[in-house]
């Protein structure tokens, strides 16, 4: 009899522990503080939906398996020795540390913890303000919110922290590397008539990661490699949708799309044309007279 009671007691304790674990997991998902580490070390915040998490895992696995032969000028723009999986993974993980989902509320998760002791420069173009907020009201594809928060802090002489992936990080450099992804990356950007997990769609998504990762670079006026205003004659005239850097995000985009296309073995004509169309769009945004900019990131001591 006594042993039966003890079995019941164990079961009761087990149920209590199970219930508490379930509640704590639900809680974690709600406030987006949990994190899942990918194979290459980038942390996915709990706000990234499970289906998107699986696709990102697939993308990063595909990246680590690449081994492409590319021109020396392409190597120079990315400042890597080769386009091997390990070099490309190294490049990306230097600039991207966390990926957050569309529902991640950066305003709620960010806090001001101090003021800067130096007078920041005034920038001619801002990424966070109107431009950034307008962008966030749309279907999100991908945004480098880490670099945007860094610029915001710098412009306002403030040091920010951000709670992401179960950690509290200090936004002291554009290399803080927090990327927000949205449904648009997996739906509106997929090649027509194909599912999100095809090789072509995976490689196209990777090119977007590399574009956003370039926003984690730069210093001074060029910190975060901000986009320039397109001239009136341009398709995107009047918008901050062009680049005046010959090693800026759109050039990185173009280089990655061209080289990743060569890894798309057995891809259909439609997939190849989609790669080329996206590359043409990126190339069209490079302004005449663009110059090579210093990629070294600045850092608040």
């Amino acid at each position: 009899m006594a042993s039966a009671w003890s079995v019941c007691g164990i079961m009761k304790n087990f149920l209590i522990v199970l219930t508490l674990s379930a509640l704590s997991l639900m809680g974690c998902n709600k406030n987006s503080t949990s994190g899942f580490s990918t194979k290459i070390g980038i942390v996915l915040d709990g706000s990234v939906p499970e289906d998107q998490r699986d696709l990102i895992d697939l993308d990063l696995s595909n990246l680590s398996r690449l081994n492409l032969s590319v021109s020396s000028s392409d190597l120079q723009v990315l400042n890597v020795n080769s386009f091997s999986g390990s070099d490309l993974v190294g490049w990306l993980t230097t600039r991207v540390h966390f990926i957050v989902g569309e529902d991640f509320d950066y305003a709620e998760q960010a806090s001001i913890v101090g003021t800067l002791s130096y007078r920041p420069q005034i920038f001619s173009s801002t990424l966070l303000d109107d431009d950034f907020l307008a962008q966030n009201s749309l279907v999100t594809i991908m945004v480098n919110i880490g670099s945007a928060l860094y610029r915001y802090g710098k412009n306002n002489s403030e040091v920010l922290t951000l709670d992401v992936g179960g950690q509290r990080i200090y936004v002291r450099s554009p290399r803080v590397g927090v990327i927000q992804i949205g449904e648009g990356l997996f739906s509106s950007w997929s090649v027509r008539g194909t599912s999100s997990n095809t090789l072509a769609n995976s490689l196209i998504r990777l090119s977007v990661f590399f574009h956003e990762a370039r926003h984690s670079d730069g210093n001074g006026d060029n910190v975060t490699f901000p986009h320039a205003v397109c001239p009136d004659w341009h398709d995107y005239g009047g918008n901050y949708s062009c680049d005046s850097s010959s090693n800026g995000p759109y050039v990185v985009d173009s280089i990655m799309l061209r080289n990743l296309r060569s890894a798309c073995v057995g891809c259909s004509n439609t997939e190849i044309q989609t790669f080329k169309a996206f590359q043409a769009d990126a190339e069209s945004r490079l302004l005449p007279g663009s110059t090579y900019k210093d990629i070294r990131p600045e850092q608040i001591p």
Partner: peptide
């Protein structure tokens, strides 16, 4: 994306 599909 749609136009690329037509071109394909």
């Amino acid at each position: 994306v749609e136009a690329s599909s037509e071109l394909g």
